[in-house]
């Protein structure tokens, strides 16, 4: 881009730039090579075999493990549950996180430090402890039922944990509740960098808070939103802990909390000893996440 006459200097600085880039990336590349790429290649190999890891016996079965997915009713249920879960949770957590961050970033708000501290708490706790607490809160005689009964929304308590109609929804609420603060914090950290002059100019033009959010904040945060949406998709498609603790590992009641990740775990660590099938499922899940993420990124970027 600079003057062409200084070609040799430009290419030298380019070499320095390359050197810097590769130096900066080397540790990350090395670690991902050893602990991700090698492991994934191993999984890929397993997925084309019938595997008994105890006896270290492998028999090549071609695409049998992959073909099995299409006739496996549970795989379809797991995918449907996972996709539904993601379709509800990702938009909900993204919008809520952005709104809360926008409000909390406002200088006019009193006590915002306090609010930030409180809102951040769920992110600090391990998901297993949170799931246990939530299961208590949603149980038949728990606070949620109590509240709904007292307000008159219910005449009879709902068995949220045992009823297949509600169990996945409870996990959705739990997941949104515990991920919003994390994404909100990421938005906030970026909002600090948002030049105030942009808002001031908009205020002179008489823009309302809503308009400022829509026309200044949202476009400014687009790269962060890409991150939030992609991490949301990945996180929801890989949801495991909550379903595992909630159903004691079975994915019940009636497969209503069966997610793909839970199914992978069941096949990898069950008496079924189907590491090959588990690997095939995992690779398929990774591919699905990849495609969904690409589509989401395209949509997010087109809106700009």
């Amino acid at each position: 881009m600079k003057a062409n006459s200084k070609k040799s200097r430009v290419s030298k600085s380019r070499l320095v730039e390359w050197f810097q880039a590769y130096t900066f990336l080397a540790p990350a590349l090395l670690i991902s090579l050893v602990f991700f790429v090698v492991s994934i290649l191993f999984s890929l190999y397993l997925s084309f075999n019938n595997v008994n890891l105890y006896a270290s016996t492998y028999s090549f079965t071609g695409i049998e493990n992959y073909a099995r997915m299409f006739t496996d009713g549970r795989a379809a249920i797991a995918l449907k549950n996972t996709a539904t879960f993601s379709a509800v949770v990702v938009p909900a957590q993204t919008i809520a996180a952005l709104m809360v961050a926008f409000v909390l970033a406002s200088d006019k708000l009193k006590g915002r430090k306090m609010f930030r501290l409180i809102y951040f708490l769920p992110t600090l706790t391990s998901s297993s402890a949170l799931t246990l607490i939530f299961m208590f809160i949603f149980n038949v005689y728990g606070p949620v039922n109590e509240l709904l009964l007292n307000v008159g929304l219910l005449s009879e308590p709902i068995n949220f944990l045992q009823n297949p109609e509600y169990s996945l929804k409870v996990i959705m609420v739990m997941n949104v509740w515990s991920t919003v603060p994390m994404f909100m914090t990421i938005y906030l950290a970026s909002l600090v960098d948002l030049p105030k002059s942009l808002y001031e100019a908009a205020e002179i033009d008489g823009a309302s808070s809503w308009e400022k959010l829509l026309y200044i904040t949202v476009p400014y945060l687009r790269p962060i939103t890409t991150y939030v949406v992609l991490m949301g998709i990945i996180g929801t498609f890989q949801m495991f802990d909550q379903a595992y603790i909630f159903s004691n590992g079975s994915g019940g009641p009636a497969n209503s909390t069966l997610t793909v990740a839970l199914m992978i775990y069941q096949y990898a660590f069950g008496q079924m000893n189907s590491m090959g099938y588990a690997s095939a499922l995992a690779i398929m899940l990774a591919l699905i996440i990849f495609v969904v993420s690409l589509v989401a990124e395209k949509v997010n970027n087109r809106n700009s």
């Binding site: 990350a28 991902s32 050893v34 602990f35 991700f36 790429v37 090698v38 492991s39 994934i40 191993f42 999984s43 890891l53 992609l230 990945i234 498609f237 890989q238 495991f240 793909v260 990740a261 992978i264 775990y265 990898a268 590491m275 588990a278 690997s279 995992a282 690779i283 899940l285 990774a286 996440i289 990849f290 993420s293």
Partner: peptide
């Protein structure tokens, strides 16, 4: 994009290979 793709691999399946490594 390589990094992005790696994030998408479910952790459950890396457990045993990582253990062996």
């Amino acid at each position: 994009y390589g990094f992005l793709a790696l994030i998408m691999v479910p952790a459950q399946v890396l457990l045993i290979p990582n253990y062996l490594i």
